[in-house]
Design a protein around this nucleic acid. Structure first.
Lengths: 112, 112
DNA sequence: TTACAGCCTCCTCCTAAGGGGAGAGTCAAG
DNA sequence: CTTGACTCTCCCCTTAGGAGGAGGCTGTAA
């Protein structure tokens, strides 16, 4: 499928998909004539990228973790990364709890 | 005191202090000659801004919440805001918990 | 053949929160 | 008088993740 359909299938904008290619996050797709042509494999990866973004994972983190063997995505290293990411999220909860403490102190210092 | 001392007193950079003035977050300080001159009031506000930033509050949020009566900072509206912000942080914890759920689902969908 | 949707590349712009540095003025001390 | 430490304004640059649009091909359906 061409990029317009890929965009609809994944919910990513056309601009975003081209951007991911530009920064090397996805491999250069095949071309039919001058048009980018995407296959199911490509769509799967784009959907993963979209979901990861919603989890707050940055593109540069993804770039480190999306690797290829013979042009095929190495999904197992992505699984490992997701497990680490879970720990990260738990740490973020701790950080927020610390902020709540700070905020309460800050609140009490303002006394008018 | 001049801006260099204000910077040391607050822990904010000189650039940051001038920037806050530029965006209207703080009022234009008095000048002695061409030099900005800060008083204790100004320092108090700058310290609040610094602490708020550490809590993840953005400058534009602060801009909405820092108001003046006769050139004096309206601290009570800041207190109200901090109370709301506490709720925000609690919501963020919920959001992160949702992300953890999403991440777990995502993890399970990758099965190699 | 022609209309028109879709695609191409390239360029500029945006937010957030300043940082770096140029070039110039100023102030006090030696 | 000069030196050194401060300060001033002005302008460009940064990261992240694209958005918007210009100008120009391409492909296909009537």
């Amino acid at each position: 499928m061409y990029i317009g359909e890929a965009s609809k299938r994944t919910g990513l904008s056309i601009k975003a998909i081209r951007f991911y290619e530009e920064i090397g996050l996805i491999q250069n797709p095949d071309r039919i004539g001058k048009y980018r042509f995407y296959k199911e494999n490509d769509i799967e990866l784009l959907i993963l990228i979209k979901e990861a973004k919603e989890l707050g994972i940055t593109l540069s983190q993804l770039k480190d973790v999306i690797t290829y063997n013979d042009d095929k995505v190495n999904w197992s290293s992505i699984k490992v990364f997701l497990a680490k990411q879970r720990v990260q999220l738990l740490n973020q909860i701790d950080d927020i709890n610390k902020k709540i403490d700070m905020l309460n102190k800050c609140y009490d210092q303002i006394h008018p």
